[in-house]
Amino acid sequence: MNQRKIRVLIGKPGLDGHDRGAKTVASVLRDNGMEVIYTGLHKTPAMIAETALQEDVDVVGLSILSGAHMELFPRVREELHNRGLDHVLLVGGGIIPADDMAALESNGFTKLFGPGTHTEDIARFIQGEMEKRWAKEAADA
């Protein structure tokens, strides 16, 4: 009776005022069978992490366009860590230079998606990653 679903939180930290991209991702993930919580604009890292905790999500996806990713993304990671949520699959996207993507990917983010990424690829990446993790969990149990 495995009724497990991939639960995803899409968060927008910081001050930028555009969430079309985030909403598009949210609805594509929904169309791929995931349960998606979207919390709207202007969230603090603490709010995003606390929501992730209460919702027991498998994935947190951050979207940012303002350029503050090197400041805000690691703070979200820290707030998640403070709540014992290191197991959460952390991904991000937005307008992020390649160097920064690499830096974040060696600092707790599993994957960063640059501008122009096909949304379906994001869905496929998350699905593949969760399948691996759940298979490992089942093997460990």
């Binding site: 929904r30 169309d31 791929n32 995931m34 919580i37 709010m47």
Partner: peptide, 20 residues
Amino acid sequence: SPFTGGALLGDRIRMEERTL
């Protein structure tokens, strides 16, 4: 969704002041 099994869960957006 009865078709994909996915869902967009949007109620808590109206309760965000209570998050912390």
